[in-house]
Every structure is written in C-alpha cells, then in structure tokens.
Design a protein around this nucleic acid. Structure first.
Lengths: 202, 202
DNA sequence: GTCTATAGTTCGATAGAC
DNA sequence: GTCTATCGAACTATAGAC
C-alpha cells in the first residue's frame, strides 16, 4: 500500500484541484480572473493554502502551463503516428479546446518575463518534435510535390492558421473560412498522398 | 476662430491623452494594467476625470479600439491602391506595431461581450473592404494562376500568418519563419504578377 | 472640466496556530 | 496540510464642491 500513497506536495490532490480550477478560470474569464482568493474559494480551500502550493501567482500560471504543455506534447507524438499524419495534425489543431487557454498565456507572456521564456522554450521544443517525427517518415527532402513548400514552413502555416481560424470562429468571424479550410485540405493531400512509403502517382 | 475651438467632449485634448495613455499601457503592460487610477495618474489628471470621459472601463477600451480601427481602415484603403497591392498588404500586416494591441483586444474579447461584438463587426467590415477593393482590380475570378487560391482564402491566410508570425517573433520563436516568408512572397507574386492590367506571361 | 472625498470591493502575501 | 487573522495596497464608481 505504501506505493500508492501520495503525500508528496507534487502529487497532492488539492494541488491538482487548484490547477484545474485555475485553467478553467482562465478559459472562461481570462487570466485576470485568477487570484489566490478566487481560486481558493472555487477549490473549497483558503487563499493561504493556494500560496502554500504556489508561492506566487506566476508560479501557479507556470504550473498550469507546464501541465498542459506536457499533455500536448505526448498527444501530438501519438497524432503524428497516424497513416495520414498531416491531416491528423490539422484535425487535432483546429479543435477549439486548447486555443482559448493558449490565447490567455500569449497575452500573459506579453508582459510577464518568466512566462514568456517558458512559452518560447516550449514552442521551440514542440516544433522541433514535429519536424523530427515527420522527417523520420521521409518528408521534406526532395519529394516530388513537396519541393515548393518546405516542411518547416508548412508547420508554421498550419499552426498559425489553426490558431487564427479557431480564434476568429469564437468571435463569430467566418468570412473566407470555408475556402481556407478547403485550401488547406488540398495542400495537405499533396504531402500525405506523396509519402515515401506510398507509390508516387506519376 | 470659432471654427477651431474644441469644447465638445469628443474633441477634448484631455480625452485624446487618455486614449493615448490607455493604448500605450495595453501595449506595454497588457489590458490588466489599465485602471482609472493608473490612466489618470499617467495622464496627469484624477481618476474621477477618467470616469467623466468614460463612464466605465469598457467604454474606455471601446473608444481606444474604435479609434485604432478607423485609422487602420483608411490606411488599408491606401495600401491596397499600391501597384502591387498584395505585397503592400503583406508588408503592412507584418509590421509589429498594431499586433500587440490587437492581441490584448482579442484576449479582452474572450470575456467581455461588448468588446467581442465590436471586434467581430469590425473584422467583417474590414475583410469585406479588402475583398471589394481587390476584386475591383480584377482578381479572384478566373485568373490563370489564381484559380486554386480563392481571394477570400488568401486574405484569411495572410491575416492569420502575419498575426502569428509577429506574435511568435515577439516571444522569440523563429523556427521556420524564414521559409514561411519566402513561401508567402512566392504566393503573392502569383497574384501581383498576374493582374488583369498586366500582360499574362505565357 | 476638473477636483476632493469616500463608500465598498478585492487583492497578494505573510505570520503563526493547529 | 490546512486554517485564521491581518497588513497594506489597489481597484470601480459616485457624490458633490468649485
């Protein structure tokens, strides 16, 4: 039984609740709604206990970000194993779930140094993981139709477009979205249909 | 002389200062740094006077947004008259100046209804203006190389990409950016070099 | 238009009991 | 690990004098 007990601070159930409450508050009301009092109240504990787990609010924000980042990294690793990895990546990226939270972190990063550097470091790790996984499946070198769209550029385009489309959708802006999605599908097929392990079509 | 006096509330010099201070605070420290006390202090007036001009903070935010939006609309109208309108649009869009402010408004819009609807309405007006101006120069119909990239999609791609690249740049993320910019230039040339008023090249 | 004064909130963070 | 109690500070918004 001693193997299952969890008294260490990092595994505390309370800590998990605090992280969940914080993430929800950020999604629903923005980072400005996060305070030790508010988080404590919604988690059923006192503000002082929030400070016990996270000395400052920045520590709390960082912990939320790191947890989400790690989950995202492993989910992406799985997504990129799909038979049509780029289509799978795209479908995954245009899910609105994580975007609202990411937007809040972007805004936070604009004026909190500790968060900015954490986000930047993660983003680079993330993009390099994507590159490595995709290149290991033999893209990006001298594929017939992929020549004019280097893989690094494609990844930038996909991430900017998915983020932008989801944000606009949530604001109620849909002008040109259908055409854009169709265009992306067409572009992705040029890659997913021309992998090295499939027969070239001409 | 009576034509130059400006006693109306909307033309007040103080009002202008308040708008400027607010925009600067949003850019440099985020929307959360905006308060009637802070704005008043930095403008050299009392908090009560801020409330005299803008009953609530939302009114203040909205006024800042509207002012920037109007300026942006007229600047864009001029940009799109360039001999290479899409290149001009792109160069204009990747200027970092307005992006930080826009990011703050996006984050604000996520949880302030009045701001969300204002941003959405403006974005649609904006995109329709772009479409109208560009189509009047005979794009997007059946141009030789533009067939597979409809103009509405192109505009979405440009705006998402410019916003995304600038944001990433400011965080220090540059992976894949050079390749993406090259790709965009190539795409834009397919349009700008194939306008109806230039000779087709084959 | 601009001010003083103030009511009523909410906040970050800490000390220290249990 | 969780609490009470508290300091010191910031905030929105309004009332009303000038």
């Amino acid at each position: 039984m001693s193997g299952t007990r969890r008294s260490a601070t990092d595994n505390s159930e309370t800590r998990k609740v605090l992280l969940d409450v914080t993430a929800r508050l950020m999604r629903e009301e923005g980072y400005a709604a996060v305070s030790s009092r508010r988080v404590g109240r919604e988690a059923g504990v006192t503000p002082a206990l929030v400070h016990y787990y996270f000395a400052t609010l920045d520590d709390l924000f960082l912990a939320v970000f790191r947890e989400g980042a790690e989950k995202n990294l492993s989910r992406h690793a799985r997504v990129l194993e799909s038979p049509q990895p780029l289509h799978a990546l795209w479908e995954f990226s245009i899910e609105p779930s994580g975007t609202a939270l990411l937007t809040e972190f972007m805004a936070l990063a604009n004026h909190r140094k500790s968060i900015r550097s954490e986000i930047a470091e993660y983003a680079m790790r993330f993009r390099r993981l994507q590159l490595a996984l995709l290149e290991s499946r033999r893209w990006g070198q001298s594929e017939p139709t992929g020549q004019d769209v280097p893989l690094p550029a494609l990844l930038v385009v996909l991430s900017c477009l998915s983020r932008g489309l989801v944000m606009e959708d949530e604001l109620g802006i849909t002008e040109g979205h259908a055409e854009t999605r169709a265009l992306v599908e067409q572009l992705l097929s040029r890659f997913d249909d021309n992998r090295a392990d499939r027969a070239p079509q001409a």
